[in-house]
Design a protein around this nucleic acid. Structure first.
Length: 570
DNA sequence: CTGGGGAGGGGGCCC
DNA sequence: CGGGCCCCCTCCCCA
């Protein structure tokens, strides 16, 4: 006895779950996009995936081999056995698909693409750059090589029929997640996505369209961090704080973010109607290591911009608000795909903090502190960046959705904005001394050793303030703090940073990556320094002593706050 | 209830 | 780019 449609139905269910982010236990990063999926499915579809998902919950794919648009098709294919076409010319699309399929060892798909290309009478390697976002010809060369190894024996037309059976072969047991999948709250979005995509149940409706740019080297995550880590985190957090916020903020935040991007918004039509604008193509992608764990390098962008889609309100934003507090996807900033924008837009109601309202309204970037204080006063660690600002409203820029922060001008496309930004000289980017920069940091930096002591030892002086540095690189780094632009945006919450390292550190907090574990209690931390601090809890060391009362403290900050008590008039 | 201490976490910034 | 430190905010516990 055999149920004829069993496999098909099963896949259908899985694809719907993917669309909802339900039980998704792996995130695939493709350039700027994040895709959620199920390890089992991926592992069953390709040995390559199988090896990747075995130990990782977060996979970076080689951006020279696959781009988000293509990967979306591929993911849809994996889940449905159907290959949906894009707006891209067929040949280019199949070339790109073939490249990616070969890279991902999706032999069936590769064979299908080859056959399709052959049928069209054109060499798949004949034209490069079919990847939609301007992939270099190199991808094609590589693909050609790897394609030769693909071994496909079935008929392409038979793929649909055998697809689910093939999938059922593979299985991985690692179903633990390091980012919790608390996405049920977003289940409402499934219908939206699905209904929107006229092509039926295909996952392209939503599940794979979480276009996010991570912009960080996730490899910072400890290799085995995954399951145990997350569980530890949760347990410790709960036991020590008993606060849902503390316990789940990073993880839930991440998960929710991913969710919405992947699901929350009907974006597929937008996606297909407009190529994904990732805004990273300008930088050379120095392909080094292959495949996973590749850091998404965004060479320093001088561009800082915000994008508003004032259609959000009309289309999705309202829905999202109506449909509750499903954590709107925080992910993405920067020029992203339409889907991403919509995702953002959908989230754009009261919650998503894309950027300080004032910044937008003023058409310039206020000191980050205003944002920060506002968000943090809300109080909940990283979740601040998601839930925030009551009454926060998108600012209508008409059709000019890309806004230059320094000057406030709006542009209808990222290209135009980028071109415009280039016209800003560096001087433009500096802030007048009496201007927006400064208050807090300058005032509080009195103890900063960068005050103009010893000009001999610090020959590199800042042209804006009085600080001086030992080496030009540090000076350069410092001078960026005077810029209006913050070149490194977090693509989850949109917060801007002056230093890439700060941004990547920040991103780790979104993703709940805590590479530093306490051997005593298992508590994990995002920073080594935190662990060092924490270890004093176990050692009992209290190196910080109050000179007024003799009180001792394990952390300097607590001594400082203690000293305030002494000095406070009340 | 309140204030103080302990501690987790985030951002800025220098080395 | 990572480490380290400083500053801040916040939460929890406890007296």
């Amino acid at each position: 006895m055999e149920l004829p449609n069993h496999a098909k139905q099963l896949l259908l269910q899985l694809n719907q779950q993917r669309a909802k982010g339900f039980l998704c236990d792996v995130i695939i990063v493709v350039e700027n996009a994040l895709f959620r999926a199920h390890k089992n499915i991926l592992a069953a579809s390709s040995m390559y995936f199988k090896s990747l998902v075995l130990h990782d919950n977060l996979i970076n794919l080689d951006t020279d081999m696959v781009n988000p648009t293509v990967f979306r098709q591929i993911l849809d294919f994996i889940y449905t056995g159907k290959l949906l076409t894009t707006d891209q010319p067929g040949e280019q699309n199949f070339n790109a698909l073939l490249t990616a399929a070969s890279y991902l060892q999706l032999h069936d798909l590769a064979a299908l693409c080859r056959k399709k290309l052959k049928r069209n009478g054109k060499s798949f390697a004949g034209r490069a750059g079919g990847l939609g976002v301007g992939r270099p010809a190199r991808s094609q060369r590589l693909s050609t090589a790897s394609v030769i190894q693909t071994r496909y024996s079935g008929s392409t037309e038979g793929m649909k029929g055998s697809h689910s059976k093939e999938l059922s072969k593979g299985k991985v047991s690692d179903d633990e997640v390091f980012i919790s999948s608390s996405n049920q709250e977003n289940s409402h979005s499934l219908s939206r996505g699905a209904s929107k995509n006229g092509s039926g149940s295909s996952g392209s409706a939503n599940g794979s369209t979480g276009d996010q740019e991570l912009g960080l080297d996730l490899s910072k995550k400890s290799p085995s961090l995954p399951a145990a880590a997350s569980q530890d985190d949760m347990q410790h957090s709960e036991s020590q704080h008993g606060s849902p916020q503390s316990a789940s903020a990073p993880a839930a935040n991440s998960a929710s973010s991913f969710d919405e991007s992947a699901v929350g918004v009907p974006q597929s039509t937008a996606d297909s109607s407009e190529p994904i604008d990732m805004d990273v193509g300008e930088e050379s992608h120095s392909l080094s290591e292959s495949g996973q764990r590749k850091s998404l390098r965004h060479s320093a962008r001088k561009k800082e911009w915000i994008k508003r889609d004032n259609t959000f309100d009309r289309k999705d934003g309202g829905k999202d608000r109506e449909e509750g507090d499903g954590l709107p996807n925080g992910i993405l900033m920067g020029p992203l795909s339409k889907s991403a924008e919509r995702s953002l837009g959908g989230a754009y109601g009261p919650e998503l903090p894309f950027q300080c309202k004032e910044e937008v309204e003023n058409g310039k970037e206020n000191s980050d502190d205003s944002c920060q204080s506002e968000s943090e006063s809300g109080g909940h660690t990283s979740a601040n960046y998601i839930y925030r600002q009551e009454g926060f409203e998108p600012v209508a820029y008409g059709d000019n959705l890309y806004v230059c922060i320094p000057c406030g001008k709006g542009f209808p496309s990222s290209e135009q904005l980028n071109a415009h930004v280039e016209t800003h000289t560096e001087e433009d980017l500096y802030i007048k001394e009496e201007g927006t920069y400064g208050g807090k940091e300058e005032a509080e930096d009195l103890s900063n050793p960068n005050q103009p002591y010893g000009a001999e030892s610090r020959p590199f002086k800042c042209s804006v303030c009085e600080k001086s540095y030992k080496d030009p690189a540090t000076l350069r780094q410092h001078e960026k703090t005077h810029w209006l632009t913050r070149p490194f945006p977090c693509n989850i919450c949109g917060k801007m940073f002056t230093q890439r390292g700060t941004m990547t550190r920040h991103m780790r907090s979104h993703l709940g990556l805590k590479p530093f574990a306490c051997e005593e209690c298992g508590m994990r931390f995002t920073r080594q320094y935190r662990l060092t601090e924490h270890m004093r809890v176990h050692s009992g060391e209290k190196p910080y002593e109050c000179q007024l009362c003799g009180g001792k403290f394990t952390q300097q900050r607590n001594l400082i706050s203690h000293l305030r008590m002494h000095t406070s008039p009340t």
